Simulated scan of single mutants.
Amino acid sequence: MEKSTDSSRMKTSGKLFTIGLISFWYSSNIGVILLNKYLLSNYGFKYPIFLTMCHMTACALLSYIAIAWLKVVPMQTVRSRVQFTKIATLSAVFCASVVAGNISLRYLPVSFNQAVGATTPFFTAVFAYLMTLKREGWLTYVTLIPVVTGVIIASGVRILVTVMDLFRLRRRRETGDHRTVGEPSFHLFGFLMCVGATAARALKTVLQGILLSSEAEKLNSMNLLMYMAPIAVVCLIPAALIMEKNVVGITIALAKEDTKFIWYLLFNSTLAYFVNLTNFLVTKHTSALTLQVLGNAKGAVAVVISILIFRNPVTVTGMLGYCLTVIGVVLYSEAKKRNK
């Protein structure tokens, strides 16, 4: 009787641990998206490359502490120069995806950013076919139709609203009416950066499968991050100094002017690491498919929270487009599961 009681207690504690882990993963994931948006758009810190460099620096330091000191996972070594080249390639693509994603948050609402980001399976399927000639089942490709259609609906609505806002603004200026029209809800450069970030994330997934497919070279995600992050920092330092002139001086000045800013930056960078850590732990304690399904729901939660916090304008048609995309991603996950 005591053994069964102990067994049930262990199962209950295991479930509570998994629920707590998922909650922490959700919190860190949504938190870093919203804080990025706040810093880059609302706060006015318009330096996405430098912000990404802070994220990667935190990932490099904290992943080393987690592996070398806390022994979260066993440390794996880089076995050859060829393997290092592969990791560096992955780091460059990963870096491009994060920078482009942060740039897009300067111009786009989080809700629209998440809608475009949900099309990652579409780009993954395209890159997988182009680079490996790997074909999925016909049902998998069919499920990608609502994924893309939803974003087309959402972006089409935003483009139309923006054109109408600009037209009304022009007419008011012509008639001497200086009342303001709402801020345009669509930004072409931001949209292109968001699509670029989504495509780069998909490319990184495919490249990771190709470059580190060898059993001798395979690294778990925690060790891979530990080696990728410092390479990303080395790439981002010159990019930030050249493209975001005097960013270090501006950051120091902001920190002196508002002490909260430095805490925002530190907290944001730490959250960026915990996104990767909890991603790994949730996969370990559940499954990759569960992580994908939870990720779909996370996007919807992020949209709702961002609307409540930032009050960004949302149309019914735009929300229907986003919902259609999420439904498509869920169907895509199920189709992939059946093919396996």
Rank of each mutant, 00 (worst) to 15 (best):
Q208A: 15
I159R: 06
K218Q: 12
R171L: 07
F167E: 11
V206F: 00
A216T: 15
V163E: 15
L254T: 10
A240Q: 09
R168G: 02
F186T: 01
G196M: 04
T259R: 13
I159V: 15
L192S: 04
K218L: 14
V161W: 12
L211S: 11
G196Y: 00
R173I: 01
S155F: 04
R170F: 14
A239C: 10
A199F: 10
T251W: 00
R201H: 14
L188F: 04
G249P: 14
A253E: 13
C194E: 12
A202N: 13
G190R: 03
R201F: 11
V161M: 15
S213A: 07
I250Y: 10
R179Q: 01
R201Y: 15
L219R: 06
V233S: 15
L188E: 00
M193V: 02
G196R: 01
A229I: 04
H187M: 10
V248R: 01
R172H: 14
S155L: 14
T259V: 11
A229W: 02
T198M: 03
I210K: 10
T162P: 10
G182F: 05
R172E: 06
I252S: 08
S214T: 07
R171Q: 11
F189Y: 14
A216R: 15
T162Q: 11
M228V: 02
E217P: 09
V233K: 12
N220Y: 03
G156P: 09
L203G: 05
P184R: 02
S214P: 08
A239H: 01
V163T: 11
L212R: 08
P238E: 08
